[in-house]
């Protein structure tokens, strides 16, 4: 069956958000199963989002702040644009890895801004924690990506073509999992969104549409990291294979989430420093020793 490439592109753009939400549903379901519960149906996040769009907003003092209204939508836009830069054959711009890093930092920065706009001490603390961690993890993430591309000696993301990188760069793989845990806010490093310490974190003051956009961008980020995880460390598969492997990666993430607790901010920071040293060693190593 040969579809018109334009139709495929339109379908792809339309189905990104539902697909990401189903991935979030799979994560919740998998965590629930690991905790001996039945868990929600995997389409649950879609219901949640639709409900949030139907709900009214609650009155907060923060509403006077224009950032409060705009930032969730901006976060969603940036998170959505991740998927326009996934190097799949039919929808890809030519861009280098620096652009990828730039997008991820932008999303995190907007998330921090969303917290400060919330006008709530708890979301301010959550944002502050995210900022503190950003200093560290963005650097590690940059060096991981740098290691990968230096190893492959390419510059463009779409030119990256190596199978089973995790065997060649095992330390980078471990560091990637740690950074990913912070980025998609799962334990052990979800200090920025710790529900018992800072309530709902950045989202505390949001309700209705704003909350829906924040939730969607969370789900998009989760899916995006699942794609990156496979693309960089396992292999560059075509779209149908990706549809199979991405849920598996999400199940792996939920396994990480279910089997760990949460570290404190300073402990997280200490461990990140350790990872930074590790990845630097890896970066230097590929120059001399390879297998």
């Amino acid at each position: 069956m040969n579809l018109d490439p334009n139709i495929v592109k339109i379908l792809y753009i339309l189905l990104i958000v539902p697909f990401a939400l189903v991935m979030e549903g799979i994560r919740r379901k998998a965590v629930a199963r690991m905790q001996n519960r039945i868990g929600p149906p995997i389409t649950q996040p879609i219901y949640d989002i639709l409900k949030l769009f139907q709900k009214k907003k609650s009155d907060t003092l923060a509403q006077e702040n224009s950032f409060f209204k705009v930032v969730p939508f901006l976060t969603f836009c940036v998170a959505f644009s991740f998927f326009l830069f996934i190097p799949l054959s039919f929808i890809s711009f030519k861009h280098d890895f620096i652009f990828l890093i730039y997008l991820l930092v932008l999303e995190s920065a907007l998330f921090v801004l969303a917290g400060f706009a919330g006008n709530n001490p708890y979301s301010a603390i959550a944002s502050m924690r995210e900022l503190i961690l950003m200093v560290s993890y963005e650097m590690i993430f940059t060096i991981i990506i740098l290691t990968l591309f230096v190893y492959e000696e390419v510059l463009m993301v779409s030119e990256f073509g190596a199978m089973f990188m995790l065997l060649k760069l095992p330390i980078a793989f471990i560091c990637f999992i740690a950074v990913m845990a912070i980025e998609i806010r799962i334990t052990p490093y979800d200090t920025a969104a710790a529900p018992t310490e800072v309530l709902e974190g950045v989202e505390t003051e949001y309700s209705g549409k704003g909350l829906a956009f924040l939730h969607i961008s969370d789900a998009l980020k989760l899916t995006f990291f699942a794609v990156l995880f496979i693309y960089f460390f396992f292999g560059q598969f075509s779209l149908p294979w990706m549809l199979l492997f991405v849920p598996l990666a999400v199940v792996f993430f939920s396994f990480v989430q279910a089997t760990t607790g949460r570290y404190r901010v300073d402990q997280t920071f200490k461990r990140l420093t350790f990872f930074l040293i590790l990845i630097l060693i890896e970066f230097v190593r590929i120059k001399f020793i390879t297998w």
């Binding site: 965590v31 279910a258 607790g261 949460r262």
Partner: peptide, 16 residues
């Protein structure tokens, strides 16, 4: 106590 440190799986097991 496990829930407070984010270890939700242990929380669920304890409650079970």
């Amino acid at each position: 106590a496990m829930h407070e440190i984010g270890y939700d799986t242990m929380f669920q097991y304890g409650m079970r």
